[in-house]
Simulated scan of single mutants.
Amino acid sequence: MRIAVLADIHGNLLALDAVLDDLKHRGGADITVNLGDCVSGPLWPRETMERLQALNLPTVRGNHDRRVAQDPDDETMWPSDRYAQERLTGLQREALLALPLTLEVLPGVVAFHARPDHDEKYLADAITDGRLVRAPLAAIRRRLKSLDPACGIVLCGHSHRAELIRIPGGPVIFNPGSIGCPAYDDDTPPAHVSEQGTPHARYGIVELGEQGRPDRFEAIAVDYDHEAAARQAEQAGRPEWAHALRTGFMPD
C-alpha cells in the first residue's frame, strides 16, 4: 500500500502539477491525501481549486482554508486569504469550510493539517530566535494527547518543514513539507519565519507493509518552473512571495 502525501499547496498550480506528474512517473499511489491549505496565496487559487475538485482527493481543512471561507467584510483577513477568496466561487469557499479537521486515511493512519484538535497550532515545531525548530519531545507528546492510542502514523503539514519523527511508544509523525510555498513569515506573536531552503515543490510517499506497518517514508523535492510562479506573485504585488518562491528563503 502506497500513500502519497500532499500538503500546503497554497494556490501554486504549477508546483501541484509538477508533483502529480512526478508521482505518476513513480508509479502512482493507492491513496493520495491532501493535508490542506489548498489555495491561499497570490498565485492561481481558482485554477488550483478546480484541479483539486476534479481529483476529489481525501482532504483535511487547513487554517487558511478556513480563513479563505470567512466573512469577506472581516478587515483582519490576511492578504493571501483575501486574494484567494476574491477569486473563488461561493460554492468553492463553502467546500473548503466543510472539509474535516481530521481524517482516518486507513486504520491507524490519521491525517490533519496542524494538530488533531486545532488547524493553526504547530505540532512538531517550536519558535526559537524567530525561526521554527523541532519542538521538545515532551511538548509533541502533549499535543498528541487527543489522538487515539491505536494510531500508528500521523500525517500533518502546516509548518512547511519536512519532518519524520518516531515518538517512543507512540506514532510516527510525517510532514512532507510544502508543495507550493517554500518559505513564509508569520507576524502572529512571537513573529517567526519558516524556510525550506530551496524553491522545490515538496511531497511525500509512505509505503505500508504487513498489518499496515510503515516500511518506508520518502520526502521528495521536485523542480518546477518556480520563476513563472515568482512572476505571478510579483504581478499580484507580493515581492516577498516572489523571493520565497525563487529561493526557499524569506527576504532579509
Score class of each variant (00 low, 15 high):
Met1His: 05
Arg2Asn: 01
Ile3Phe: 02
Ile9Ala: 01
Gly11Glu: 07
Gly11Met: 09
Asn12Glu: 08
Leu16Cys: 11
Ala18Gly: 07
Leu20Ser: 10
Asp21Lys: 06
Asp22Ala: 15
Lys24Trp: 08
His25Tyr: 01
Arg26Ser: 13
Arg26Gly: 07
Gly28Asp: 08
Asp30Tyr: 02
Ile31Leu: 03
Thr32Gly: 08
Leu35Cys: 09
Leu35Met: 12
Gly36Met: 04
Cys38Asp: 09
Ser40Tyr: 03
Leu43Lys: 00
Trp44Asp: 15
Glu50Pro: 08
Gln53Glu: 14
Asn56Arg: 11
Leu57Lys: 12
Leu57Thr: 13
Leu57Gly: 13
Pro58Ser: 06
Arg61Ala: 12
Arg61Lys: 10
Asn63Gly: 12
His64Met: 13
Val68Glu: 01
Ala69Met: 07
Gln70Trp: 10
Asp73Phe: 06
Glu75Val: 01
Pro79Arg: 07
Ser80Asp: 09
Ser80Tyr: 07
Asp81Cys: 14
Tyr83Lys: 08
Tyr83Glu: 15
Tyr83Gly: 11
Tyr83His: 13
Ala84Asn: 09
Arg87Ile: 11
Leu91Asp: 15
Gln92Gly: 09
Gln92Cys: 11
Pro100Glu: 04
Glu104Pro: 14
Leu106Glu: 15
Leu106Asn: 10
Pro107Trp: 03
Pro107Lys: 07
Pro107Arg: 03
Val109Ala: 06
Val110Gln: 04
Val110His: 10
Phe112Ser: 12
His113Glu: 08
Ala114Glu: 07
Ala114Val: 08
Glu120Cys: 13
Tyr122Pro: 12
Leu123Ser: 06
Asp125Gly: 07
Gly130Asp: 11
Leu132Ile: 05
Leu132His: 02
Val133Ser: 11
Ala135Met: 06
Ala139Thr: 05
Ser146Lys: 00
Ser146Pro: 14
Asp148Pro: 15
Pro149Lys: 00
Pro149Ile: 00
Pro149Leu: 05
Pro149Cys: 02
Cys151Leu: 05
Gly152Asp: 00
Ala162Asn: 05
Ala162Asp: 08
Ile165Lys: 07
Pro171Asn: 01
Val172His: 04
Asn175Gln: 05
Cys181Pro: 02
Cys181Ala: 05
Ala183Gln: 06
Asp185Gly: 12
Asp186Val: 15
Thr188Met: 02
Thr188Glu: 03
Pro190Val: 07
Ala191Cys: 06
His192Thr: 14
Val193Gln: 02
Ala201His: 02
Arg202Phe: 04
Gly204Arg: 06
Gly204Trp: 00
Glu207His: 03
Glu207Lys: 12
Leu208Lys: 04
Glu210Val: 15
Arg213His: 10
Arg213Asn: 14
Pro214Lys: 08
Asp215Ser: 04
Ala219Val: 03
Asp223Thr: 10
Tyr224Cys: 12
Glu227Thr: 11
Ala229Gly: 09
Ala229Gln: 10
Ala230Lys: 11
Gln235Tyr: 00
Glu240Thr: 11
Ala244Asn: 14
Ala244Thr: 14
Ala244Met: 13
Leu245Phe: 13
Leu245Gln: 08
Arg246Asp: 14
Gly248Lys: 10
Met250Ser: 05
Asp252Met: 04
